[in-house]
Amino acid sequence: MLGSLRESLDLTLFWEYRAILLRGLLENVYIFLGGAMLAMILAFAIGVARLSRRWTVRVLSTGYAELFRNTPEYVLLIWVYYVLPVIFSRLLATRFNFSPYAAAILALGASYSGFMSETVRAGILSVPREHTEAAMSLGMSKWMIMRRIIAPQAIRRMLPEALNQFVSLFKATTFVSLIAVEDLMYKVSMITVHEMRPLPLYTGAALVYCAIIVAAAQLIQHLSDRWRRRGWA
């Protein structure tokens, strides 16, 4: 009994497929990077828009954030991959398709931009109004003040919360196997079909994901602590 468990948990099978699995893992990393980049750009725009003086802009941007924040990533991913192209095809009156990569990056980026826009908004609000007034009194323009005075302070305050969201985003990249992106999970299920030994393969995948996230989070935490501590905080 115990012997068979030990045999099942023997990860050498996982190790044997390391080249293929590593290629799969890289797909996760690419999609994470693409999704994170898109999420940050959208989150900044939406976060700023949510503080607009115009109520129409505020309502629209808040609606966007709530919509994407409250739709499960999995549903959004399926919707972007299968439904959105249909809408586009009708509108453009031509066949239209997303590659699985584009769909994955778009869906995850949009989904996490909803969460992150809230962080951006809070970060901007945490910078005292007086810092802006001092800059205004020196003749700095709105955009200059955002870039030079508000953003550098807001970003430092956003880091710990943003870090949590990046971890979630990386975990969410494992859903992309569902739309046939050949990521680590996808490769594991393919090999499992072939080898008929799910236990070592899935256990190995779980351990790898966990190890990567812990290591990356530690590294970012360390870097951001060092950066935040530089002289003030």
């Binding site: 005292p128 007086e130 810092h131 007034e133 001092a134 800059a135 009194s137 005075i149 550098p152 302070q153 430092r156 003030w232």
Partner: peptide, 11 residues
């Protein structure tokens, strides 16, 4: 303009 609370930029 010089403000009561200085308003220097801390970063």
């Amino acid at each position: 303009m010089v403000f009561q609370q200085f308003n220097l930029w801390p970063h």
